[in-house]
Write a protein that binds this DNA or RNA. Structure first.
Lengths: 197, 197
DNA sequence: TATATAAATGAACGTTTGTTTATTTAAAAA
DNA sequence: TTTTTAAATAAACAAACGTTCATTTATATA
């Protein structure tokens, strides 16, 4: 029998990510995707059941890739300062090196596809993070608060900075914005100040 | 001559917001919108030049409505603590009372329509906010930092909390999340701690 | 080398898309 | 009341949509 062409599979996935990232969810048509990936429209239906399935599957793959990068060198037993720093650096590194993936994921996150993808992903990421938080609350290194409040302070500033960075000019009356590692760490220090007793 | 039917105009706008909020940008078709608003497809083209124009115009209107609500009772001369509290409460109140509008805006924000809408909106909002920040840096009530870093700490946790609230169950292994005014103010206190010297 | 099998395709399917056109309707102005 | 004017419509357009099908192509195995 004839094996699947991995290069084609990669091309389809990558082009789908770029099309959605650049033109939004309604910018992805199966025919345009096929043409831009250099395959026949019918080929897409060998790899994916239909358009919805394609979007969900690609979303799952990218999210898992991001999770793996985020957990590199991270251990939930770490001190709060160390753990937060590694998380910020890992997430920032991944996002900076995967601009398309970030924009793609952002498109999906605010769409009906997001919850369908999350169901397929499992709880490892939030399990590990939950353990990290609990450990440090017990040790007194972290203020006790609902997990959502913790997450909103700990990470949403980071992702907001990354969005500003990719937007270039974030506010109409401001200079273009560039996220440096120095500013990243400075901002993280302020977040740390908010979260530690 | 015959005047425009304001009720029809409102119905079109509201249904467009709901359709995009619920089904994403590619869930909005002109024919379905017309049917759900109770008008002929051709009528849409009396109010809007084309589909893109409809999306952009509605986005501009909703954003301005949100800006007006945000600036209520706010003065850039306020102390940092007072100003931040009013901003948080205004934004939270608007979002809580305008679920569809929030989900709609979130859809647009991560799409190619966003920048086209922002060009039409003007700089009043970020002017006022910029003045507020500058005043309080001068007074020593606020750490000096790039405006984007300030914004990311000051407001992105708030919007993240609101997203969690509307998502219901934010993390697969957690209880459903409800944003209370108490938790809102507690979180704001931590943000304040991060930003004040 | 021949066979079996799944990958890959081009062409076509019936819908749905955004938009236009010719016509009718309603209300302000005469 | 009549006239004027723009709102509103139903019906239709070509183009693009997601998807399927009959056929061809390529490769692992026998």
């Amino acid at each position: 029998m004839r094996p699947k062409d991995e290069q084609k599979e990669r091309a389809i996935r990558q082009k789908a990510i770029e099309m959605i990232a650049e033109q939004g969810l309604d910018g992805l048509s199966m025919q345009k995707l096929a043409k831009s990936a250099g395959v026949s429209p019918a080929t897409l239906y060998i790899y994916y059941k239909d358009r919805d399935d394609l979007i969900v599957q690609v979303c799952v793959e990218e999210t898992l890739r991001m999770f793996r990068a985020t957990l590199e060198n991270f251990d939930p037993q770490m001190s709060f300062g160390d753990g937060l720093r590694i998380q910020w650096l890992n997430r920032a590194r991944f996002c900076m090196a995967n601009k398309w993936s970030v924009a793609f994921t952002e498109q999906i996150r605010h769409s009906p596809y997001h919850s369908r993808a999350m169901e397929l992903i499992g709880t490892e990421m939030s399990d590990v993070l939950g353990q990290f938080v609990r450990n440090n609350v017990v040790r007194g290194e972290l203020v006790r608060m609902p997990f959502e409040a913790y997450w909103s302070i700990a990470f949403s500033p980071l992702y907001q900075l990354i969005k500003f960075h990719f937007q270039g000019r974030s506010f109409p009356n401001h200079e273009p914005f560039v996220l440096t590692e120095e500013l990243l760490l400075q901002t993280m220090q302020l977040v740390l100040k908010a979260l530690t007793p």
